[in-house]
């Protein structure tokens, strides 16, 4: 089965074609990062307007890339939640209508299920069951995954998502949006041990996270070392970035270890934008190797939002006979454990 996947849940327009026999045939991504950078975060109205502009040319482009005509597509998958409601509506209305016009089945895909299954697009995919750490600008969740659609939420952030904390810390250090890559780059020149930031909620049982205290700690540290222009000197900024990243990475690692021990699983999948963080990957790989576990993650381009993961996840559900009716239903909030299993 050959599935066209469409992702428009936030500030990236992603379109891809996945074939259940031949794998990924085409993939296109347009990032609006530059559009939103000057506002320090995603402006929903601008995001929606840009998706409308980009979708059709990108559909044409992936069909051309894969050397396919419209008759060669067997189904369409689109992100139907969670995400920005206006942005979701663009991709969902378009995708559902295109499937109707082509007389093909369509399915709305859960964005985080897409992320969770993204490592399946790699040559060495993980096997079920596993624990997934979903970590992005909108989510920080630990999920027990028995099979596709069989999810149990083990823990999640009670306030800011880890990626959101990166963005906010970046703003305090006068770095651009999105903050993750900028903090990571600055942290490389930071001095280890100059600052020690708290590891929130690691001293109590459970698998929930909280990053808002860490954010306040960062703000106070920046203020305590600020020069006349309100920012610390460049080296101190780097040292703060280093300490901040280390605190987030170690907190995530401690909870991942705990989740594996609670479930008895040996496999950890990390997905979402923050899973592209090299330091996080290194720490998790080393720590899990010590206890005989292994870590799986997608290539860098499939850690952030993309159409390929939606095409893959949609393909699995369409193959299982699931499909949506003509009414388009987008869900800005959509708990993952309410998804239906594949029968």
């Amino acid at each position: 089965m050959r599935v066209l996947g469409i992702e428009t849940s936030c500030d990236e327009t992603g379109v891809a074609i996945y074939d259940s026999e031949q794998g990924l045939l085409a993939d296109a991504l347009y990032s609006q990062v530059k559009l939103h950078a000057e506002y320090g975060g995603v402006v929903p109205e601008l995001a929606s307007r840009d998706h409308v502009r980009k979708l059709l040319p990108m559909i044409e482009s992936v069909l051309k890339q894969a050397d396919l005509t419209t008759g060669h597509i067997d189904g369409i998958a689109y992100t139907s939640g969670p995400g920005l409601i206006g942005a979701l509506m663009v991709g969902a209305c378009f995708g559902r209508s295109l499937a109707y016009a082509w007389g093909k089945p369509a399915i709305g895909v859960h964005h985080m299920e897409g992320h969770l299954l993204a490592p399946m697009l790699e040559d060495n995919p993980p096997e079920f069951p596993f624990v997934a750490l979903l970590v992005s600008g909108g989510h920080t969740q630990l999920v027990q995954v028995e099979a596709i659609g069989q999810y149990r939420l083990l823990g999640e952030s009670l306030d800011d998502a880890a990626g959101e904390a990166f963005d906010k810390a970046a703003k305090m250090l006068d770095l651009d949006y999105p903050g993750g890559p900028h903090i990571a780059r600055l942290a490389e020149s930071g001095t280890s041990g100059r600052f020690t930031f708290p590891r929130p909620m690691v001293d109590r049982p459970g698998l929930d996270f909280s990053f808002s205290g860490l954010k306040t700690f960062t703000l106070n540290t920046v203020a305590a070392h600020a020069l006349d222009d309100g920012l610390p000197d460049d080296q101190t900024c780097a040292d703060i970035a280093h300490a901040f990243q280390e605190a987030v990475v170690q907190t995530l690692a401690i909870k991942c270890r705990r989740a594996l021990s609670e479930t008895g699983y040996k496999t950890l999948v990390i997905a979402g934008g923050v899973s592209a963080n090299i330091r996080l990957r290194d720490v998790l790989v080393k720590e899990l190797a010590r206890v005989g576990g292994s870590v799986f993650y997608a290539r860098h381009q499939f850690c952030t939002d993309n159409g390929a993961m939606i095409a893959y996840a949609g393909c699995q559900r369409l193959l299982a006979g699931q499909q949506d009716k003509l009414a388009v239903n987008v869900k800005p909030r959509w708990p993952m454990d309410t998804l239906s299993p594949l029968l």
Binding site: V52, L55, L56, I59, T70, M89, V90, G91, A92, C93, F94, G95, R96, S97, L98, A99, Y100, A101, W102
Partner: peptide, 9 residues
């Protein structure tokens, strides 16, 4: 969105 899907399709 619906018009684009229908007309392109």
């Amino acid at each position: 969105g619906v018009v684009q899907g229908l007309a392109f399709g």
